[in-house]
């Protein structure tokens, strides 16, 4: 199945959780904010499985002026 990850199509395994997705993407322990279908998803909910066609935004703090 597929989701939208930061605006791009991304294949995910059925039943894959948010935490597993982040880990697979090399962000296992990075400090990020996760927006799931337009809502901030608190870290305690990152064990929930991803839904087909979900829009997932992964945001982080970067240098800026």
């Amino acid at each position: 199945m597929e989701i939208y990850l930061n605006g791009e199509r991304e294949k995910v395994n059925p039943g894959e959780t948010v935490r597993e997705l982040l880990s697979r993407k090399g962000l296992g322990d990075a400090r990020v904010v996760l927006v799931y279908n337009g809502q901030v998803l608190p870290e305690e909910d990152w064990g929930e499985p991803l839904e087909e066609e979900a829009a997932v935004e992964v945001l982080t703090i970067v240098g800026g002026g």
């Binding site: 990020v32 982080t60 970067v62 800026g64």
Partner: peptide
């Protein structure tokens, strides 16, 4: 100090600068 918020670039993830900022310094996102 100011910082910004961006989408993670999965091709070349950047390290979060917050870890390099002392705790007594106010972090002001733009």
């Amino acid at each position: 100090v100011t910082v910004a918020l961006r989408r993670v670039d999965f091709r070349s993830p950047q390290e979060n600068p917050v870890a390099y900022i002392p705790e007594n310094v106010i972090i002001m996102p733009n």
